[in-house]
């Protein structure tokens, strides 16, 4: 290990910390958009509680107390269920096996990329 190794590794760690810091500034969201294979298949307000089967029942979306989470999935790893609750603008839940994403947006006019 030399000095430039430390700079490179330290720089990357700082970068990830800075990005974590930025994501703390997210505003709370107002609705979620569900996409399968990149196509929007539904949007749900975070204000109204509800349980919604998605994508023919492959995943189950629950909206509760202004948060969204997936309560069940038919994939083996269930990573999307473990990802827990999201409520802030830009947060995402992803189910890679079913190519499904649930993205939180703040304003009604959703922009596609947030950091």
């Amino acid at each position: 290990m030399r000095r430039r190794d430390l700079f490179l590794i330290g720089g990357l760690l700082l970068l990830s910390l800075a990005l974590f810091g930025l994501s703390c500034l997210r505003q709370s969201g107002t609705f979620v958009v569900v996409r399968v294979d990149g196509m929007e298949v539904g949007r749900y307000s975070l204000d109204a509680d509800g349980v919604y089967p998605l994508n023919g029942g492959s995943n189950v979306l629950v909206i509760e107390d202004g948060c969204a989470y997936l309560s069940d999935a038919n994939c083996p790893d269930k990573l999307c269920v473990k990802q827990g609750r999201v409520s802030r603008d830009g947060q995402v839940i992803t189910c890679l096996p079913n190519r499904l994403t649930v993205t939180v947006y703040g304003q009604a006019d959703g922009v596609d990329a947030y950091l």
Partner: peptide, 20 residues
């Protein structure tokens, strides 16, 4: 590309940290 949403960059800080 596959999921058709740039929102996926949400995971970037986690992935930079774990990759490092």
């Amino acid at each position: 590309l596959l999921l058709g949403t740039g929102a996926i960059v949400y995971y970037l800080p986690y992935l930079i940290l774990s990759g490092t």
